[in-house]
């Protein structure tokens, strides 16, 4: 099982808050088409072999209208 999936929505919210406060991102923000959900990949946890995820750090940091 991909351990990156263990982090819930609140953890993603916490990560987004920290980034907005200028704290450097520790985790990678991804979208996993297999589950259809966003998730965080903590440092040191490699991407799954299939590698079929979209990293959305940039999309998140671009800001919203």
């Amino acid at each position: 099982m991909d351990s990156a999936r263990q982090l819930p929505s609140a953890a993603i919210g916490g990560e987004l808050l920290l980034r907005r406060q200028g704290v450097p991102a520790k985790n990678r923000l991804e979208f996993d088409p297999a589950s259809g959900e966003l998730r965080l990949r903590p440092p040191g946890i490699p991407a799954p072999a299939e590698g079929n995820v979209t990293v959305i750090d940039q999309i998140a940091s671009d800001g919203f209208a």
Partner: peptide
Amino acid sequence: KVVLKSLLWLTAYENHLQSGRPITDYLGT
């Protein structure tokens, strides 16, 4: 990518329900 952007909004919204913080705190301005 627009759907992913919307998913971020929805994630921020669910966090807002728990914390009461405005969505801009999560997504920026």
